[in-house]
């Protein structure tokens, strides 16, 4: 791990610094802040000043505190949803590749059916139907993301499943658990790890999009997308309030993407040939 980080190119190192900075700030920030995220402490859309470093929002809450807690909310929900997506998608993908036949056909077609809908629209419909709550949000994103994860895992695992060593394991009569964890997972893990980073960022963006549309995290609790929406009007008064949460989300996305790029390049040994 340490060695991988040391071999990162400059972009990935910047990404790593961005990510660590972001995580430290959003997790430690709320403890340092003198205000609470829901408490109204000042005037509407105050400019940055000594008591409110980034100003206040549309009802007079401290913007910096809300970016801390909003960022934390986005990260936590995105992380849980992505983990869930991988827990569902990976084993199914590997099982499809190993078993093949009717099992593969059934799962693949089911996934195709889900993927046929545009993700955001499907999420909107489902959330309108079952109501907006954090578990519902996590569930929807998990299901949507698991389809892509399944596709990728199946494709990568299919390359592994035709190897002779899989045949050797079949000849030995190994069970599914052995195939999953001992034969295939170690070989697909690097690819899946990089995909995990990307999926995580997409989930964060998805949550923010849903919140922006009013179906994500509900007020008064903060989340980055919701804050952009709440403060959208301020843009006509030349205030920075809607820009700042968007910048925070962008920093997270850029940071993770830089790391993933670095990992991919490292794995493909692309930097070896200039």
């Amino acid at each position: 791990m340490i060695k991988v980080i040391r071999n990162f190119d400059i972009g990935a190192k910047i990404g790593l610094v961005l990510l660590i900075l972001f995580l430290t700030i959003v997790f430690l920030g709320p403890m340092m802040s003198p205000y609470s995220e829901v408490e109204i402490v000042g005037d509407v859309w105050e400019s940055p000043n000594t008591s409110f470093w980034l100003g206040t929002d549309h009802v007079g809450r401290d913007l910096l505190t809300r970016i801390f807690t909003g960022g934390r909310m986005t990260v936590v929900v995105a992380l849980i949803a992505t983990c869930g997506a991988f827990l569902v998608g990976c084993p199914l993908g590997i099982a499809s590749a190993v078993i093949g036949g009717w099992f593969d056909l059934l799962v693949t077609r089911a996934v195709d059916a889900v993927m046929a809908f545009p993700g955001l629209i499907l999420a909107l419909i489902v959330l309108s139907a079952i109501g907006t709550s954090i578990p519902a949000l996590i569930f929807v994103i998990m299901v949507l993301d698991s389809t892509t994860v399944y596709r990728l895992t199946r494709a990568v695992a299919a390359d592994i499943a035709v190897m002779n060593y899989i045949e050797v394991a079949r000849l030995r009569g190994e069970n599914m658990r052995w195939f999953l964890f001992k034969e295939i997972l170690p070989n697909v893990a690097p690819t899946l790890l990089t995909e995990f980073g990307l999926r995580f960022v997409y989930s964060a963006i998805m949550i923010s999009s849903l919140s922006f549309l009013g179906l994500g995290i509900q007020p008064p609790y903060a989340d980055l997308g919701g804050m952009v929406k709440e403060n959208a009007m301020a843009i006509s008064f030349g205030r920075s309030a809607p820009i700042l949460p968007a910048v925070a989300l962008a920093l997270l996305a850029i940071g993770v993407n830089l790391i993933v790029d670095g990992l991919l390049r490292h794995r493909a040994k692309l930097d070896q040939y200039k």
Partner: peptide, 8 residues
Amino acid sequence: DVAMNPRQ
């Protein structure tokens, strides 16, 4: 090469 799992 392909008869042994490279990760074992």
